[in-house]
């Protein structure tokens, strides 16, 4: 098994460490400024393939032609990050192998896949060599300790074989538009909040502390916020450092997707619910009124939406 990790400007994608760990430390690190990638503890042996700017058509062609390991590996594993998700089908296509995307566990003989929006686990037994992508956040990693043995290939001059898009610019993260899965600070709302407008207020409060909003399924089922914002086993798995829970009971399906925040604040009228038991700061109070007050205090600037 070998992990193929697309990097840009020396930055590893989400879930790179886990994909490499799943392949017991063997990695092909391919992309731009691969020499700058910090791999100590993450990999045991790494092949750095310098490919220049992102261009999935050209990358796939260069990798399949120029990296003998890919031809011989029984499993090629990419992280299911945006770049990994887009590169893997290209690799599978070029090598004419099946693709198992969105796996939660991968061995040469058995692959487990999260399906049906994360409600089901599908177990398949591949008949031969294949390509897979691994969901970030599902396995965790242990450090390999030593820096890896590193080899380098320069393939940046490989001719384009397919039309590819041209990168014009890469914009830095913006907390408000950040994907929930990657957010470091999350303000979550549950059924204790009494109206859709509360989630606009929650967003206003979140903006004040550079956080992203999340919600429970009860809320996304009501379409008060989009399903993208649902935290939990059937929503997004997150791992923030700060989590503030407003009117959330803390059902396992929710907290199982919560990772292990350094700090949890819970505001709930029920002092005994699981979310309160998990919290570092557990406040028994009306979450709606507390939100009003928070906005009043923080946001001399923030208008309360909906009056």
């Amino acid at each position: 098994m070998i992990a193929v990790i697309p990097v840009r400007d020396g930055v590893l994608p989400a879930g790179a460490d886990e994909a490499i760990a799943e392949c017991d430390g063997r990695a092909v690190v391919a992309g731009s400024e691969t020499a700058a990638v910090e791999l100590t503890g993450i990999a045991r042996e790494a092949l750095l393939v310098e490919l220049g700017d992102v261009a999935f058509g050209r990358w796939a062609a260069a990798l399949c032609a120029g990296v003998a390991e890919l031809g011989t590996a029984d499993v090629i594993l990419c992280p299911h990050s945006p770049d990994g998700r887009d590169l893997a089908p290209r690799l599978a296509f070029t090598l004419d192998r099946p693709l198992y995307a969105g796996a939660t566990r991968v061995t040469p003989a058995v692959v487990q896949l999260a399906r049906a929006g994360g409600r089901e686990l599908h177990e398949v037994h591949p008949a031969g060599a294949f390509v897979a992508t691994l969901q970030p956040g599902v396995r965790g990693v242990e450090s390999f300790g030593e820096p890896p043995a590193v080899r380098t290939i320069d393939a940046s001059d490989v001719e384009p074989v397919a039309a590819d898009a041209t990168v014009v610019d890469v914009l830095p993260p913006d907390a408000r538009t950040m994907d929930l899965a990657e957010a470091r600070r999350i303000v979550g709302g549950g059924a204790g909040l009494d109206a859709p407008v509360r989630f606009e207020m929650l967003a206003a409060f979140a903006a004040e502390i550079d956080a992203t909003i999340g919600a429970t399924r009860v809320i996304t089922d009501r379409s008060w916020v989009h399903h993208d914002k649902q935290i939990g086993t059937t929503g997004v798995v997150v791992d923030p450092e700060l989590y503030l829970a407003f009117g959330i009971s803390g059902a396992v399906q929710h907290t199982a997707g919560l990772g292990s925040p350094d700090h949890i604040v819970s505001v709930n009228t029920d002092p005994h619910c699981p979310m309160m038991a998990m919290a570092d700061l557990a406040i028994v109070s009306d979450a709606n009124a507390t939100l009003d007050e928070l906005l009043r205090r923080l946001g001399g600037l923030v208008e309360r939406p909906g009056g």
Binding site: I264, D280, I283, S285
Partner: peptide, 22 residues
Amino acid sequence: GAAPAHGDAVTLDPPEAAQRII
């Protein structure tokens, strides 16, 4: 997870609660 040990829940009025969170 990494959550440090926490105290018991405190009951507060919304204004106090907001201040406490801040």
